[in-house]
Amino acid sequence: MKSTHNNVGGRDGRLTQKKLKTKPVLIVLGLLLLGNMLWFIAWLVPNGPTGGNEVVATVGKEEISREDWMVAMEEQYGKETLLELVNARVMNTAAKKYEIKVTDKEIDLELSLIRTAQDSTGSQGLSLNSDMHRQKTRAQLILDKVLTKDVVIEDEQIQTFFDENQSLYNIPTTYQASLIVLQTISDAQEAVNELENGSSFDVLARERSVDASSASLGGDIGYISEGQENVDSSVVEAASKLEVDQWSSPVALSEGRYGVVYLQDIVEGQEFSFEDVKDHIKRELALEQLPQSVSPEAFWKEFDTEWFYGE
């Protein structure tokens, strides 16, 4: 299949930028869902040999066994989790057949773009450093490369897009942070005292924070960076002065309340050159030429794939 793409600048260029920015958002949502499911299921698996009749909870005299628990989890999450595992294996097989290579540098670029897009997803509490997320990103890159291997995009189009959207590839330093929001400075100082006495930041955020959205996530506000519109600048400033696994003193917030900031991780900023992102832009522009989106399931028949759930 061969196709060309014209009018990258102007209205089409703005549309292209929007699409390029949206794709990492969709990956974020997928990673978050998969991560939660796999973590929870892994948590259920016993560390040692235990019977399926092991009691994990009681309600009055009624017992809930580990087997009951696992069956309920399989019914709720089993299909989605197995689907991800099967699709990852299918994409690995496709990579061998079509001689597709995915480098660590390409995965790093995709994850960096995901971090910059995360603020617009509403998805929080997402760590992108695990092997699982790198494998998920690798599978997506294999799929994209297989789908676009015969699509022709001219070098001039790629250069034009880069020139008009260079800021997309100038990634600022980001801080994965958590926040407890309190009404007064005395409340904030009391929270700091509790943390110094051994309280868990996650638990304290759920119990004390007056910001409902982050409190429900144990205070996690995801990746933040300087200039981010939906994050109080004082929170970013406080995070930038912390060491990993350290919390701040009370911080005055713009709306008159106070916060305690906890730094989970730092991802240093990167500025990607045209050569760094040339293949990425080419692939994204090529994907726009496809008549419809394609999932790994489209390759199941080609690689003789069957699974527990049948058709």
Rank of each mutant, 00 (worst) to 15 (best):
V102P: 11
L168W: 07
A298F: 14
R206M: 12
R115E: 08
E67Y: 08
G30K: 15
G48Y: 08
D155L: 10
M132H: 07
Q289V: 00
D245G: 05
G35K: 08
D144Y: 04
R134N: 02
T121R: 04
R89I: 08
D202I: 15
D279V: 12
D202A: 09
S112Y: 12
G310L: 00
G13A: 12
L168Y: 06
Q176T: 11
F308Y: 14
A88I: 07
R257S: 14
L44I: 05
L147F: 06
A57T: 01
L111I: 15
R206S: 08
V71A: 14
W69G: 03
E284T: 07
M73Y: 10
W69Y: 11
E110F: 14
M37Y: 13
A191E: 10
I114L: 15
G198I: 14
I114M: 15
V192W: 04
H280L: 14
T50N: 07
A188P: 00
N230F: 01
E154Q: 13
M70N: 04
G122S: 03
A94V: 10
F303R: 06
V251H: 02
N165Q: 12
G219Y: 05
S213F: 12
E284C: 07
D163Y: 11
K105E: 15
R283D: 10
I41L: 10
V55K: 05
T93W: 09
F299E: 05
T4H: 11
V181T: 14
P172H: 06
G222R: 00
E106Q: 15
L20I: 13
M1C: 02
R66N: 07
E190P: 00
A72F: 11
E243R: 10
L182W: 01
V251D: 07
L143V: 06
V152Y: 06
E311P: 05
P24F: 02
P49L: 14
F272Y: 14
G122H: 03
D12P: 08
F274Y: 15
G198P: 13
S216W: 01
N87G: 03
T174Y: 06
L287C: 07
K241N: 15
L20Q: 01
S213D: 12
R257P: 02
V244C: 05
S123W: 03
A238G: 09
G198K: 12
L38E: 15
I107M: 03
